[in-house]
């Protein structure tokens, strides 16, 4: 079984870490992943940019509505995600709008990635 581990924390606190604290946490996290990585059982690892960089596409209406900021409703649940390489936010929104046509309702949050490691997992 493949599992996704989703990371939640207070952004205000995490972005108040000093550089030393940040580095300390990161090196501990890398050590914690090592066993899985060596066994070829670690998939892609991503770190997202802060929510201030996020844009949300509400696709429960036509045309869909673009809103600045992260997805904030609690009525809908996280069901999956895509990783896509785009030239600009505009292009990423176009991609999300295409997806929205195939699967209306709900929202997509478009958030730039700070880091993406491919992992060691084989298909």
């Amino acid at each position: 079984m493949l599992y996704a581990v989703l990371c939640y924390n207070s952004e205000e606190t995490v972005f108040s870490w000093s550089k030393d604290e940040e580095e300390a946490v990161m090196s501990k996290l890398i050590a914690a992943q090592e066993k899985m990585a060596k066994a070829g059982r670690l998939g892609p690892v991503a770190r997202l940019m802060p929510t201030t960089t996020a844009t949300t596409l509400r696709k429960d209406r036509e045309p869909p509505l673009v809103i600045d900021g992260p997805f904030a409703e609690t009525k809908e649940q996280l069901l999956g995600f895509y990783v896509v390489d785009c030239e600009s936010l505009e292009e990423a929104l176009d991609f999300a709008k295409e997806l929205g046509k195939a699967n209306p309702g709900g929202s997509y949050e478009i958030r730039p990635m700070a880091l993406l490691l491919p992992g060691t997992l084989k298909q």
């Binding site: 960089t53 936010l89 505009e90 730039p112 700070a114």
Partner: peptide, 16 residues
Amino acid sequence: QPMIAEGLALIDKAMR
């Protein structure tokens, strides 16, 4: 580079 990436993402978003 991470700071640059965040700055570019934000200006991209602002210009829309």
